[in-house]
């Protein structure tokens, strides 16, 4: 069982969350017309073996989206922040 440190609710089980995938992909500007850029955004991932920044939605808690740093080999969990505070 993974346990995530929610900045609002404290330490909670992974079963309260829904996984949202890689948090480093940036949605292109809505006026972007190059399909290659959209393809890369929708489909391509770094999928790193090691440190991974990822979204988790505290869906059965405060319903906030978090950005969590987690290691994909050791499952060690680092910093967890509110996604809206991470996004510029």
């Amino acid at each position: 069982m993974l346990r995530l440190q929610c900045p609002v609710c404290g330490l909670r089980d992974e079963t309260e969350f829904s996984y949202g995938g890689d948090a480093t992909v940036q949605r292109p500007d809505m006026n972007e017309t190059d399909l290659k850029v959209w393809h890369d955004f929708v489909f391509l991932r770094d999928n790193p073996r090691g440190a991974h920044l990822e979204y988790w939605h505290h869906v059965h808690g405060c319903r906030q989206w978090l950005v969590v740093e987690r290691d994909t080999q050791s499952h060690e969990i680092g910093d967890a922040r509110l996604a809206r505070e991470v996004q510029g």
């Binding site: 069982m1 993974l2 992974e14 079963t15 996984y19 995938g21 890689d22 999928n47 073996r49 991974h52 990822e54 987690r70 994909t72 080999q73 050791s74 499952h75």
Partner: peptide
Amino acid sequence: DKYNTYAQRGGMP
């Protein structure tokens, strides 16, 4: 298990 991992083990949920 529904999250990215390279660890050859799964979780209890």
